[in-house]
């Protein structure tokens, strides 16, 4: 009921996007068609030229059906161990994403606990945490990769560390807010029972922060994926969605770029949905209710 009711607006928006996309593809790819026709010295009918814009090998903007066909070709029609399989590249990126996400979450939680419990840490660490996110990751990633390569770390770990760098931030911010969310009365109550600091943490601050934690985990997962993709770009484009993007742009394979982009978007959506579900189940079971 509410499901079908929400489906109609979504489908409308999707249809609108697809329509705009086709129109843009025609408009953007048309100059090349015109050039080709002029070079060959032939007159091509307008409709044929439009058809041509949607079937180029290296279009400026590939048409939706070209991207869909490319995704189909590189997922369903390839063995997943093949270097030409998008699933293979997706898995490479996903493994770095997940590892970085776990690192980032753990680091974020540790920092948040420290910041909430020690005023010195609040004053000394928090500015650095915020400053860390003002450095463009694109500038930082190659340096991290190079430095780690020099000490013999290759492949998964350097990428995961870039993911960590991007994903710990939302966790720190969310957890600090969550751990500080209990109001004065609840803290006063703990004091009237002369509860210890540890008891106040585990029985009050920690459970109170759970909704905040799940909200920031969603952001952290998406950031982690971005980190893994960025981390794959300076490695000389060996494997992963980032490598597909880079290789695609080297050789003007725009269709491949778009296919990789959609694969990345699908991965991000799946991760966020999964965390959302885990959050809903956990919070319901904890009794947060409604």
């Amino acid at each position: 009921m509410s499901w079908t009711r929400s489906l109609l607006p979504i489908l409308t928006v999707v249809a609108a996007i697809v329509a705009v996309w086709y129109l843009s593809a025609v408009a953007l790819n048309m100059p090349w068609e015109r050039d080709q026709a002029a070079r060959a010295g032939t007159e091509v009918a307008f409709l044929d030229r439009v058809a041509g814009t949607l079937a180029q090998d290296r279009p400026v903007l590939p048409a939706p059906h070209q991207v869909v066909a490319e995704i189909w070709k590189t997922t369903a029609e390839q063995k997943i161990t093949s270097k030409r399989s998008l699933v293979y590249h997706g898995w490479i990126t996903l493994s770095a994403t997940l590892l970085g996400f776990v690192f980032g979450t753990a680091l974020g939680m540790l920092l948040a606990v420290g910041i909430v419990h020690s005023r010195a840490m609040d004053l000394s660490i928090m500015p650095w945490v915020i400053a860390s996110q003002t450095i463009p990751i694109l500038a930082l990633a190659p340096m991290i990769i190079v430095v780690l390569n020099a000490v013999g770390l290759k492949g998964l770990i350097p990428k995961a560390l870039i993911s960590t760098y991007l994903s710990f931030f939302p966790v720190v911010v969310g957890m600090v807010k969550g751990l500080r969310s209990p109001d004065r009365i609840q803290l006063d109550l703990m004091r009237t029972w002369s509860a210890s600091g540890t008891q106040t943490f585990w029985k009050l601050r920690w459970p109170a922060s759970t909704p905040y934690l799940f909200a920031s985990l969603k952001i952290a997962a998406a950031a982690s994926l971005v980190g893994a993709i960025v981390g794959e770009m300076p490695t000389g484009a060996v494997a992963g969605l980032g490598a597909r993007l880079l290789a695609g742009s080297y050789y003007g394979q725009t269709i491949q770029i778009w296919a990789a982009l959609f694969a990345a978007a699908a991965l991000a959506a799946a991760l966020v949905a999964l965390i959302g579900l885990a959050g809903r189940v956990t919070l319901t079971r904890m009794g947060f209710g409604r």
Binding site: I185, A208, G289
Partner: peptide, 20 residues
Amino acid sequence: RRARAYGYVFQAAALYPWRT
């Protein structure tokens, strides 16, 4: 307070939402 000599009831019930 350390001897837990009193119980305190605030104007708001301040029950923890995650506990029954």
